[in-house]
């Protein structure tokens, strides 16, 4: 092993060790996901489904009767989720961070 090779290996090792183990400041993990946070995600998905359903109805893909039946079913699902969120919010220990829920459609 030549001195050059030895130097390259030592430098590389030192850089890696420094990067991995030098941790200035404090670190904090996100809190664990709560049931309420999960329900908010589900609620947003149901809203998305409703939005898609409305759009497809306007595009003429479904007859009125089909649309009303599907809409009612989705609204029922949304209502059940919202009811559970409300129940959990009434018991503060079980909820995650509360804020004005908005969503990025993606």
């Amino acid at each position: 092993m030549t001195p050059f090779v030895l130097c390259v290996c030592l430098l590389f090792t030192a850089a890696v060790v420094f990067y991995v183990f030098y941790l200035p400041g404090t670190l904090k993990l996100d809190p664990k996901k709560t049931r309420a946070a999960y329900l908010r995600e589900r609620r947003d998905v149901v809203y998305d489904n409703l939005r898609d359903l409305n759009f497809e109805f306007k595009a003429g893909k479904f007859p009125e009767a089909d649309y009303q039946a599907m809409k009612a079913s989705l609204e029922e699902e949304a209502a059940a989720i919202l009811a559970e969120i409300a129940r959990l919010e009434a018991a503060p220990s079980s909820v995650g961070p509360i804020g004005s829920p908005t969503k990025q459609k993606n």
Binding site: D44, Y47, R51, F55, A80, K103, K105
Partner: peptide, 24 residues
């Protein structure tokens, strides 16, 4: 490609509503 616009959804306090203007 990310979708064009963020859609704001106002959430009612209790289980009674669906998003207003959905589908537009």
């Amino acid at each position: 490609v990310p979708n064009a616009a963020a859609v704001r959804v106002t959430v009612p306090a209790r289980a009674q509503a669906v998003p207003a203007g959905a589908g537009d």
